[in-house]
């Protein structure tokens, strides 16, 4: 990703004249695209999530590369942010089995025995198995 310039001055000049307006227009177009995509795909959850996450990812990448100058920095920025991203992913993935799995059967009696983390004894305060 990182682009190398021959001199510091050249690189400063590249930063000062980066295509910010173009990036801005692309970001706005993507936002409009997201808006209508969400409206069209409202029924289909898988397509909705996948499509929107891709669009949001492109937007985030554009902001980081151009506005945050990651494109012009050395690789050290990746050395900081990639571990953070990996740890973030580990945390969320490790939370999934315990918290992120919906109880399959909403029936209270059965839930108690099949999924230890399912809400118990609803609507009856203090009832615990």
């Amino acid at each position: 990703m990182a682009v190398t310039y021959a001199t510091h001055e050249e690189q400063e000049a590249a930063e000062a004249h980066a295509p910010y307006i173009k990036v801005w227009v692309v970001l706005l177009v993507l936002t409009v695209l997201e808006y209508f995509y969400a409206k069209l795909m409202a029924g289909n959850m898988t397509a909705l999530v996948l499509g929107l996450l891709i669009l949001a990812g492109i937007k985030a990448a554009l902001v980081a590369l151009y506005f945050m100058h990651v494109k012009f920095e050395g690789r050290w920025v990746y050395a900081i942010m990639v571990p953070a991203g990996i740890l973030a992913a580990i945390l969320v993935l490790a939370l999934m089995p315990d918290i992120g799995t919906a109880p399959e059967n909403p029936d209270v009696e059965e839930t108690v025995w099949s999924a230890p983390n399912a809400p118990l004894g609803r609507d009856e305060p203090g009832v615990r198995v």
């Binding site: 945390l91 490790a94 939370l95 315990d98 918290i99 983390n117 809400p119 004894g121 609803r122 609507d123 009856e124 305060p125 203090g126």
Partner: peptide, 22 residues
Amino acid sequence: VAWSVANQPGPVGGGQTILWQH
């Protein structure tokens, strides 16, 4: 969901206690 202590009105709930531990 539906927890209360000392007969105080409980919160709506829906969260997970084990989330804090993680």
